[in-house]
Amino acid sequence: MSQKDLPHAAKLLTIWLVIGLVIFLGIKAWEHEREASRFKLAGQTVVLTRAPDGHFHWPGRVGDIAVDFLVDTGATSTALPQALAERAGLKPLGTISTQTAGGSAAGFAARADIALEGGVRADRLMVAVLPNLGAPLLGMDVLGRLHFSQKPGELRIESKE
Rank of each mutant, 00 (worst) to 15 (best):
R38N: 03
F39L: 11
F39V: 06
F39Q: 02
K40L: 13
A42W: 02
Q44F: 02
Q44P: 01
T45Y: 04
T45R: 14
V46N: 03
L48D: 00
L48K: 01
L48V: 01
T49Y: 13
T49I: 06
R50C: 02
A51E: 03
P52H: 11
P52I: 09
D53F: 06
D53A: 09
D53G: 10
D53H: 07
H57F: 11
W58M: 04
W58N: 06
P59T: 10
G60D: 13
R61T: 13
R61P: 01
V62Y: 09
G63S: 10
G63A: 11
D64Y: 08
D64V: 07
A66Y: 13
V67A: 15
D68R: 14
D72Q: 07
T73L: 06
G74L: 08
G74V: 06
A75V: 02
A75S: 12
A75H: 01
T76P: 00
S77T: 09
T78A: 11
L80F: 10
L80R: 11
P81M: 07
P81A: 05
Q82L: 14
Q82V: 10
A83E: 14
A83I: 06
E86W: 04
E86R: 15
A88V: 10
G89C: 05
K91M: 05
K91A: 09
P92C: 04
L93Y: 00
G94V: 10
G94C: 08
T95Q: 07
I96C: 03
I96P: 02
T98R: 14
T98N: 06
T100F: 05
G102F: 01
G103W: 08
G103C: 10
S104E: 11
S104I: 09
A106M: 07
G107W: 01
A109H: 00
A109P: 00
A110G: 03
I114F: 06
L116F: 06
L116D: 08
L116N: 09
A122W: 06
M126H: 04
L130K: 05
L130R: 07
L130P: 03
P131D: 12
